[in-house]
Simulated assay, not measured.
Amino acid sequence: MSASKTKAWIQAFRLRTLPLAFSSILLGAFLASASDYFNGVILGLSLLTTLFLQVLSNLANDYGDARSGVDGDEREGPSRTVQTGLISQAEMKSALFICAGLALISGVALIIYSLPDQWGYTLTFLVMGFGAIAAAIKYTVGKNPYGYAGFGDLFVLIFFGYVGVLGTYFLYAQSISMDLLLPATTCGLFSVAVLNVNNIRDIESDRKTGKYSIPVRLGRSKAVVYHWFLLLSGLLTSVVYGVLHEFQWSGWLFLLVTPLVFINARAVYTKKTSQELDPFLKQMALTTLLYVVLFGWALL
């Protein structure tokens, strides 16, 4: 493989999305470890499975947007590899099958190791795993991709919040408590905020190509209000968790991300061009990861 082709594949993998993808897995592991359920093998397999799923989602997004015409000349975000011809549609389709297969193998190994001889739970997690693979692909691929209909936010909340955090915790503990919904909601809402920055950045090009994301449906002004709602609600749910668990001063370390959250919120309000907004995708993803690390450190 030539150096230019290798570079194109690395670009298609969009590795800058991995910190956000890993955040929910790490939060679930921190919560489990705080309850004395940690297992390094489960963590490793969880991260590996998430890596394959996130890369699968990124490749499917590249492939689907090129086929649908969303990645046209007027698109304002970073260029994609299929749309620019760096990778052919046939090559990308083959990569989707390979990545889906790797995610399935890793996921099955994770489930079998975590839930030995518990066939009810095993089948449940297998269904969830197939759902995660289908969700990664159907975001932009197929006749009716849900990402184009404005349902991307809901699926991100479900998979980056509840499935990612609570599902990971369950693999360690084989039980769950309702209060864990609160930090899981924070992780999910912060992840939706990353998607919202992306969709506000691309609002004009998406509108012209028929991609009806939440910002396209709401308009830019209301999408900014929606962004503030996501960020403030995300902070609030973790504050409620801290109050319920009577955190000592060290337990509130996660609030150190508050200035970064407000920097992101202000940027979405004041920055108007794609070039100005693009860095705040990475900034919000890293803020989410920092929240998870600080929250987990405080728990331990």
Rank of each mutant, 00 (worst) to 15 (best):
G152V: 04
A149W: 00
F155G: 11
V141D: 03
P145Q: 05
V141H: 14
G147W: 04
F159K: 14
A136Y: 06
G161N: 10
A134R: 14
I158W: 12
V156N: 14
L157V: 08
K138M: 10
G147T: 06
G152M: 02
G142F: 00
G161R: 13
G161S: 05
Y146P: 10
G142S: 07
G147R: 12
G147S: 00
T140N: 06
L154A: 15
F151G: 03
G142C: 01
K138C: 05
G152E: 00
F159T: 14
Y162R: 05
Y139F: 07
I158D: 09
N144Y: 11
A135C: 14
Y148H: 03
F155H: 11
V141K: 08
Y139L: 00
Y162D: 01
I133K: 07
A135P: 04
F159L: 15
A149S: 06
Y139I: 03
N144E: 00
A149Q: 11
K138Y: 10
K143M: 02
G150S: 07
I133C: 04
P145V: 04
V141C: 09
F159A: 13
I158Y: 10
G152W: 03
L154V: 15
Y148T: 01
I133Q: 08
Y139G: 01
G152H: 02
G152F: 02
T140C: 04
F159D: 13
F159Y: 15
L154H: 11
A134W: 14
N144W: 12
Y139C: 04
G161Y: 11
L157G: 13
G147E: 05
K138S: 14
G161Q: 05
F155V: 15
F160S: 09
N144H: 13
G161M: 06
N144A: 12
N144V: 08
G152C: 00
I137K: 12
F160I: 01
F151W: 15
L154F: 15
G161L: 06
G142Q: 04
G150W: 08
F155D: 09
G150H: 02
P145Y: 04
